[in-house]
Structures are given as C-alpha cells and as structure tokens.
Amino acid sequence: MEQLLGQFSLGLFILQIVLFVGLILLLKKFAWKPILDAVNEREEGIKDALLSAENAKKEMMALKSDNQKLLDEARAERDTMIKEATAIKEKMIADAKSEAQTQGAKMIEQAKATIESEKNNAVAEIKNQVSSLSLEIAEKLLKEELSNKDSQTKLVEKMLADVKLN
C-alpha cells in the first residue's frame, strides 16, 4: 500500500484527467458521433431495405394469387360454358330424336290408318265381287240345273268342294 501511494503522482493524475476528458470530448465530436450515426444510418437502411423487400415479396405473392384466381375463374367459366354447350347439344339431339319419333309414329299411324281403310275398301270390294260372283254362280247353277239334273248335282258338288277348299 505504501509503495502504491508512493508511486502515485498527483501531477500525472491531474494531467491524465485533463487529457482524457479532452480526448473524450474531441473524439465524441469528431469520431464517435459520425461513426455511430453512420453505422446507425446504415443499419436503418438495411432494416428498411429488408422490410421493403419483404413487402415486395408479399405484394408479389398477392399478385400471383390474384392471377391464379383470375385463371381459376376463367377456367371455371370455360368449364361451365362447355358444360352448358354440351347440355344444349344433348337437349337438341334429344328433342330432335323425340320429334322424329313422334313424327315417325304419326306417319306410321297415318300409314296404318290408310292401309286399314284401303284394306277395308279392298275387303268390301272383294265382298261385293264375291257376292256378285256368287250371284253369277248361283245364276249359272240355276240355269244348268234346269237343263241337266246330273250335271247340276255334279256342278253343285264341285262348287261345294271349291267352296270347301276356299
């Protein structure tokens, strides 16, 4: 302790305090302030740049998702359009088919009716002709019976056989 105090020089102590405080003030004005300011500014700049980059990224993402959405919408629209078109087409085909069918059925019906009436006509005519024919035959028979009994019976038999065959 004695040695310590013995080595203590008051003059050096005072000078050191004066010099050191002077150095602090000088450096504060000319060195530390500009350095720390510059470093702070740089750090702020870096922080800002990072932030803006992050924002840009976010914006980009938003834009991308917008695009995606538009694309999706367009695709969906196209799909619905195609679907509608298909439906219309099918409907048209179905309509046409059903119309054709009804038309065909109608025509067949008419044809059938015509055929029926023709047939009826034909049958009626045939009936007429048959009746007139049978009248003629009966006339002829009656005529022949009068002339020949044998041949009359024969004829009648023959006619009857014919009728049977018919």
Partner: peptide, 27 residues
C-alpha cells in the same frame, strides 16, 4: 506539483493523436 510532460504523458498524447486521426478518418 509535477505537471511535466513525462514519458507517460508523451505516450498518452501519442495514443490520443493516433486515436483522433484514426477514428476521425473512419468517421
């Protein structure tokens, strides 16, 4: 009361000057 520019003071002044020049240039 010894306010001499001793060897230590010379060194202190030298280091102070060095620091001043160096850090001012950095700034």
């Amino acid at each position: 009361l010894d306010l001499s520019i001793t060897k230590n003071i010379v060194m202190i002044l030298f280091v102070a000057l060095l620091m001043f020049v160096m850090f001012r240039n950095l700034g």
